[in-house]
């Protein structure tokens, strides 16, 4: 167990972050916090991708093209997951922007960011 924590701590961290993120989405009444929860959830996945590229190649260096040493001798982390994470980050930013824009519109229409108040306001109308 201790060994697992020492060597694979990023995986444990990923599941902790996934849990916190999904809990925020479900439990928080504040719309902005919900969106932060979604972001945390996504970030955990980015962490997962990056750490899986590194762990299998212990001591590997970053996959930057002009590295020193003989080709084939230097251990390099897999660049593919890193490219994936870059793309996923861009997607995540776009989603956050759209989500925040919607929240601004909701706030200007209903004057609240809390979901329970929002429910009451909409029920009253």
């Amino acid at each position: 167990m201790i060994e697992l924590l020492a060597s694979r701590y990023t995986y444990v961290l990923m599941f902790v972050l996934l849990g916190i993120g999904i809990y925020m989405v479900i439990a928080s009444e504040n719309l902005v916090k919900k969106l932060i929860g979604v972001n945390l959830f996504q970030t955990a996945i980015f962490l997962f991708f990056v750490s899986m590229a590194y762990i299998d190649a212990d001591g590997a260096s970053a996959p930057i093209v002009p590295h020193h040493g003989e080709p084939g001798e230097v251990m390099v982390a897999s660049p593919l997951p890193q490219v994936i994470v870059l793309t996923a980050i861009v997607v995540g930013i776009a989603l956050t922007a759209v989500g925040l824009a919607l929240i601004i519109r909701i706030y200007s229409e209903y004057g609240t960011l809390r979901e329970d108040t929002l429910r009451e306001v909409r029920a009253d109308e």
Binding site: V25, V38, I45, F48, M52, V98, I103, I106, R122
Partner: peptide, 30 residues
Amino acid sequence: PESAVAALKYLVLGTVAASMYLIGVAFVFM
């Protein structure tokens, strides 16, 4: 304004769903 609420609900659920798919892809890729 109801449409913004509907869209936000869809955004949160849809993003979590797509992220679930991405976790699945991560496992299979691993």
